[in-house]
């Protein structure tokens, strides 16, 4: 449980990739995403996965990206078996399964290397209304807090004799009710306190709030931008004019 919770927390890693402008990171992720959708051969998808691994290593986040991909392996296996079963053949089934892994890998690279602060800036840059952005920000900010809350409630209920790990699937789900109700009540109280604190710090007092941080494309970002677009176009060219043997 604690292990799962720690996976949801953003950890600041310093690497040449994480230092990129978040928009460039988003662009790279989208490029990988599009290429994975287009690739229709095992070799093609394998090359994309290899490039994703290379970028993840460059971003010093190989282990975290690997962990996310490991979770997706169950689904990839399911996709493989299902396609094989409906008679799509070994190679195509394998392509579909690998494509799924590539898609998960490309999106997780973005979310693992981008801090919530940067996500917020991208959302503002996309002109998403401030209230929506702020709701997103507080939701992410309070993930660890609510997690901790949940663990404390679990401990408290266990110490009163609640047996969470007992019984079949249905009774296990039912066992969670005494944890969920206090958790929801706590969160409602917390949201009231948050609203008071927001008002007290002048949230919404000006229609044009500013931000301590900003996004700026440096020469380094521009170079990566050009490079990634060039590789993307090259990949599209290969995809269009060259057929891999399998």
């Amino acid at each position: 449980m604690y292990w799962l919770a720690s996976g949801l927390l953003y950890r600041r890693v310093v690497s040449p990739f994480t230092k990129l402008d978040p928009r460039i990171k988003l662009l790279i992720a989208i490029e990988f995403f599009v290429l994975s959708l287009l690739a229709s051969s095992v070799i093609g998808v394998a090359i994309i996965i290899a490039s994703i691994v290379a970028v993840a290593a460059f971003a010093r986040s190989l282990r975290r990206v690997g962990r996310t991909v490991a979770f997706s392996l169950i689904f990839a296996t399911f996709i493989f078996v299902l396609n094989l079963w409906i008679g799509l053949g070994l190679l195509r089934s394998l392509t579909f399964a690998l494509r799924f892994i590539a898609i998960i890998g490309s999106t997780s690279i973005f979310f693992i290397t981008t801090s919530p602060d940067e996500l917020e800036q991208i959302m503002k840059w996309m002109r998403i209304p401030r209230d929506v952005v702020f709701a997103f920000v507080t939701a992410v900010r309070f993930i660890p807090v609510v997690m901790l809350d949940a663990f404390q409630i679990m401990d408290a209920q266990k110490s009163r004799g609640l047996e969470l790990e007992k019984g079949g699937l249905l009774s296990r789900v039912r066992n969670l009710i005494p944890v969920l109700i206090p958790l929801v009540v706590n969160s409602v109280i917390r949201s009231g306190e948050l609203a008071e604190a927001m008002e007290s710090r002048g949230y919404g007092s000006t229609p044009k709030p500013t931000s301590l941080y900003g996004m700026r494309l440096r020469w380094y970002d521009k170079a990566v931008l050009v490079l990634s677009l060039a590789v993307f176009v090259l990949a599209l060219y290969i995809y269009h004019f060259y057929t891999f043997p399998f």
């Binding site: 900010r141 306190e193 604190a197 002048g202 919404g204 007092s205 000006t206």
Partner: peptide, 19 residues
Amino acid sequence: NQIFMFSVERDIAFGLENQ
């Protein structure tokens, strides 16, 4: 319940951003 942002300095600036 009064810290909204992901880094200390950004949170200190929260009220100033609102201004």
